[in-house]
Amino acid sequence: MAEKKQTVPFSGTKEQEEKLMQVIAEHRDDPGATMPLLQKAQEIYGYLPREVLKKISDETMIPLEKLYGVATFYSQFSLNPKGKYRISVCLGTACYVKGSGDIYNALTEKLNISGGECTPDGKFSLDACRCVGACGLAPVMLVNDEVYGRLTVDDVDDILAKYE
């Protein structure tokens, strides 16, 4: 079932909007600007709120639904804000055969959220990802840009505690 995409109340700043307008201006005559526009908009806002896509749509005349269709196609785009600490567990083959599935399950239990969600306090969000290329350290998880490798389930508590 297609989830109703609930976005938290939008609270963009003036600077963010100025940046967005600048990005739109830079790409005005760029064929196929949709992806770079969405990527940069997500960089600016952290996610893709409806208000931002609407702005892009109004400025570029790309239909809003088209932008939304693109945004929901690629897993990198998020319609919800991410947690302060973004946890992603690598479920690539190398990590999987070394037990990263168990790490992922342990995290969903401990944080009480499923993949793609954010804890109610906005602290942690959890995602599974495919191969971050650190196969030598498998199994691997990332908290923001920090890589934790050669993990066991028992390590999870300690890692989370670092961010509490």
Partner: peptide
């Protein structure tokens, strides 16, 4: 450069 966005 064009960046992918997570679609195999």
């Amino acid at each position: 450069l064009r960046l992918g966005a997570g679609a195999f």
